[in-house]
Each structure stands twice: as C-alpha cells, then as structure tokens.
Design a protein around this nucleic acid. Structure first.
Lengths: 317, 317
DNA sequence: TCCGCCATTGAATAATTGCTCAAACGAGAG
DNA sequence: CTCTCGTTTGAGCAATTATTCAATGGCGGA
C-alpha cells in the first residue's frame, strides 16, 4: 500500500523515458516495449502516465492567421499593447483551455529575459492553470509579487495560491501578501496596509513591469460568490450598482470604472491598474466573462489580453 | 505546380489549427474533421503536415530526457548499437554511481530472456558493483564465461571476482578462467591457452552473444597499477607508446587500436572484441576514463556503452 | 479548346493505440 | 502459514490513426 518515494520516482523516470521515446524519438509503443523489455500494454501505460504526470509539453509554433487577425483587431479596438488569441474548441465549455497554456507561454517569455523584472500576479483558476504549465526554470533575477491577499474568508491560506506555485516552479524570489482578500472595514484595511511587510509588497506591486490577472464576472455563479468572498446579498447590491466584473477583488462597471461602494473599500489588494503603468495582462475567456473582459479593456484596467477565438469574436461584435 | 505563398500559408494555418486541436485540445481526428468540416483523412493529413512542418514542439520536462538525447547522439557519433546514459549526480565523484545500477538492469534484461545465451564478463570495480545489483534469479538456460583470468599477480584468486558473484546470484552455469591475468612470457601464455579447460572457455567467450566489460585508464592511479598487474616502469613505457586505455588487460591507443608491445603479448585474456561480433557493452564513467572510453568506441573495441550524463557530455565535445 | 500532368481526394485497409476485464501477484493482517 | 484486499498484469477487443491506391479534377501548355 504505502508507496515509497523511490518507487514513485522510478516510475516517473520510466514514464519520462517512454514518453521521450514515443513523442520525441517517434517510436511506436511496440518498439518502446521491446527496448525496455516490457509488454506493449506496460509501455502504453508508461506513455499515458508520462502525459498524465504533466511531463509532456506540446506547443504549436504558429500564430494562426485567424487568431492573429482577431488579436490585431482587438488591439486596435481597445487600444491594447498586447493581445493573444488562441483557437477555440467549439465543443468544450472550458473557460481555461488554451488560454492557460498561452498565458504560461507569455509568462515564460517574460521570465526568460535576463534583465531583472518585477512580475505581479493576481489569483484565480485561470492563472492557477497557467502556472501549472510553466516549465521548471531558474529565474533568480526576477521578483514575483502577489497583488492580493492569500487568506480566504474561512481563514485558510490556500485558495488558488498562484504565487507560491509559480515562484516554486521558476525558482524566483517571491513576495506574497499575508492578508485577507477582503477585510471587514476600511479602517482595518488601512491598519493592515501599514504593516512593514505589506507596505513593501504593495510598493513592489506598484512598480511591476508586468502584471498577470484573471477576470471574474459578478454573477450568482461567480467565483467571488462561490468561494465566499462576498455574500449573495452583497452581490445583488453590486449588481444594482452596475458591477459587471472583478479583478483581484476590485469590482468595476461596464465602462471599466471601479465602483465607489462599501465593498471596494474593503478590498485589500494592490490597486489595479498599478501606478507604474506597466503591462497588465488579463487571461480570460468564455461567454460569462465577456462583458467583464470588455469593460476592463474599455476602461483601461488592463492593456493586454489573452483570450480565445470565440471570446475575441464576441468582443469584436 | 507553382504554389502561391498564400496557398501555402493558408495550408499551414489550417495545419496549425488541426495540430492544436489534436495535440493541445486532445481531439480525435474525427472530431477535428467535423469541426473543420473536412474529411477525416484530410484532418489526418493536416495534423501530420503540422508535425512535418515543425509546428509541433514536444518536450519532456524530466532529467531523463537529456540523458536519452545524449544516448542517441553517442550512438550516432560512435556508431554504437546500444547506449545508455544515466543522470549524473553532480555532488558525487564516484566513478560507479548509477552506471553500476544501469549495467545491472541491462544484464538482467539479457538474463530474463528464455533463449539460451552466452554472456561474457570482464572484470573491474564497475562490473563488480553491477553484479551486486543483480537480483537473485534462476537462469540455468544461460552460460556465463569469464574473459579474463582470475589469478592476481600475488597468486590470490579473488580480485574483483565478477564471474563467481554473478553466476552465484543468477544461478547460471559458469566458466571461469583459471589463469593469471598477465603471464610472464608469450610462450607461457601459449602453453596455458592450450589447456583443455582454458581452450573451451576461450571458445565459449568467442561465441558470446553479449559481453560486459569495464574500461580502465592507463595512468599512475589506474587499477592496472594499483592492483599490481603492471609495474610503474612498465606503465610509463606504455604511456610513451600512446596507451590511453585498457579492457580486460588489453592496452590500446587513442584510436582504439591494440598496441603492439611486450605487455599485450603477455595478456592472457580472451580477445576483444570477440570474433563473434556480438554485443560488447562497456560500463564506465568519469573524467579519468573518458579518453579511454572515447578510444574504445572509436576503434570499435566496443559497440555498446553505459555511462553517465557528464561523461556523455565530454564524449560529445 | 483539348491534352496530359500531377496534386488532391476519399474508400479501403493495415497498423497502432486505448480500454476492459479476469487472473496473477504481493504486501500485510491475523 | 494462510487469507484478504488492493494492485498490477497482459490478453482480447474496440477505437483511432496511418497508408495505399484508384479516381478526380484543376491548371498550364500546345
């Protein structure tokens, strides 16, 4: 029963070997089986294991024309500095597929640079998925700073904890924010923001050359509600005030203006957009998020966007 | 005939899209066909085109990947039939770590076969360590034969006694060579080789389907000297004649040619490579042994190699 | 306009891969 | 030592992918 670490590591080694022989060297599973002295099924299991374990990374080196066109149109329409559109899979209802990979590629591109850079990251399922696609790197020259607290309403500290996974994967110094995402009162926020550590982190975030964020909608099924950052009543209230979207907690209307309300006064995240006016890149897709994305782009809360073809199409309508 | 640039670009776009849907989104070619409104074969052709055009990049995120690549390069460079590269442990200066285990694995793989096989083994610390990693087996169908004498210069019979440990561990009939490794004169060698038992063993060794050997360097700290098979003076003499390495006693130069000298005339081991032209697999690693390994591979003394990543790197420089 | 060349197409088929399931195996409890 | 339970194994089969081949049709040249 108790699997030793060693067993598991050996299995991964074998899986990686099989995966390499299959995907890189182009062997058939039969060939792999005979080379490794195992049965074809065992080879198949290893190959499939190597994929399941995330050892195999596939990427397509080609900006597909249609996507490129849409990306150019989006840049023109919303005055974006950066835009990436990935092909849609019409049959999938995923709000992550493709965008996460593309976001990871862009993150990697930034991290590959030699000049020390400050990267700020928000939170959310999309970013979470994105950092999982980052390859292991050694980027000690950069600093990664969190835009938002890492403490959930229930007091736990693990909600979509993007910054830790990212920093761990790319071996960069990181600056999390030991704060709740939403505090109880404006006064409490002020006190917490005065803490030395928090102050430093906020300063760093404000200087970030590039910022990666997710975009949330403000509906009954929004993460904001599901994850308990806000009650159903509060949400309806925001709805009445014209809220359409949310970035690291900051709620805004269809023009991309932060809403002047009690809720935003309690959000403890770093300001969006940061004062530095660096790149602020949102990764988001899906019909539900479309109005929130459009508003954020319109109001200049973001100046970069990674989305999919279908969402791009809706944004251009 | 004349393909327009535009046609080709469109085709690539489509190929990239199909490749993306296939490799990234995980669709089957049938699904892609219906989504793109083309036939299944057309989808297949697009996917295959996307690979052929180099649009699809696969990479394996695992240390093993680098090893497999190096192994392939080594096979190509030195025309080896078999090559295994194990990860290096940068923290260790061991000249055995990893290679012994890998050698044991390969031995085991050969021994697991049902068809009766003749395995020849040399001697040395590396092979010694390898057989210690063999699991207990019952391989009565195979025969294990020693390439070299088991009598040390001091008359003892226990020097790195690989064949006995191996045969004992895997329960196989075995044929040691009751000879010194190096005799006094060419004449003495001739006499000893005429003995019935020795003759039989040599014949068996010549027919071996697979031969496992270690590789020794010819320096002042070489096993050859340390274990007293050769005097310091003799070694210096060999040095002057261009000796860089040694396999079961046979001394060769940097091109992998056996050196025509007094010493080689007194070596009582079976010839290397064996006349059967079976697999001759060397297990060796480390900076000191690198020139010896390179020479053996270059000159065709061996056609299989088990080494570590760092040594592989040096061999490819 | 007609001809012939050759790239493209889809049907048929071969090869490969993925899945299911019963049997064998092995660790650990009794 | 034996039993049990969960895991691993490989055979058989279904699904998917790759290749072959004859038919089609577009295009340039006569």
């Amino acid at each position: 029963m108790a699997k030793t670490r060693e067993d598991e590591a050996t299995r991964l080694d074998e899986a990686a070997r099989a995966g390499w022989l299959y995907y890189v060297a182009g062997n058939t599973q039969d060939q792999i089986a005979s080379k490794l002295g195992i049965s074809r099924q065992a080879a198949q299991r290893l190959v499939s294991h190597s994929v399941a374990a995330g050892l195999v990374r596939v990427r397509i080196d080609h900006p597909i024309a249609a996507c490129l066109e849409r990306a150019e149109s989006l840049k023109a329409r919303y005055g974006l500095k950066y835009c990436e559109v990935v092909p849609s899979d019409p049959a999938s209802a995923s709000t992550i597929l493709g965008v996460a990979e593309a976001c990871a590629v862009e993150m990697e591109r930034r991290l590959r640079r030699d000049e020390p850079t400050i990267l700020a990251v928000g939170t959310g399922r999309t970013l979470r998925a994105a950092v999982e696609h980052l390859p292991p790197m050694a980027c000690t020259q950069h600093r990664i700073v969190s835009l938002t607290g890492n403490i959930a309403p229930d007091g736990s500290a693990s909600v979509y904890n993007v910054i830790y996974s990212m920093a761990d994967q790319v071996k960069a110094p990181h600056y999390p924010m030991p704060l709740p995402v939403v505090v109880s009162t404006p006064r409490e926020r002020e006190l917490l923001h005065r803490q030395k550590v928090v102050e430093l982190t906020l300063q760093l975030a404000a200087k970030a050359e590039v910022t990666f964020v997710g975009v949330g909608e403000v509906s009954a099924r929004a993460p904001l509600v599901v994850d308990g950052f806000i009650t159903a009543d509060e949400r309806e209230d925001l709805d009445r005030q014209g809220a359409v979207g949310e970035i690291v907690g900051w709620v805004y209307d269809s023009a991309g203006r932060l809403i002047d309300c009690r809720f935003n006064e309690r959000v403890a995240s770093a300001p969006i957009p940061p004062t530095s006016r660096g790149d602020v890149i949102a990764a988001a897709m899906g019909p539900a998020k479309t109005p929130a994305i459009r508003a954020a782009a319109t109001g200049g809360l973001i100046n970069g966007l990674i989305t999919d073809e279908a969402t791009a199409h809706r944004l251009l309508d």
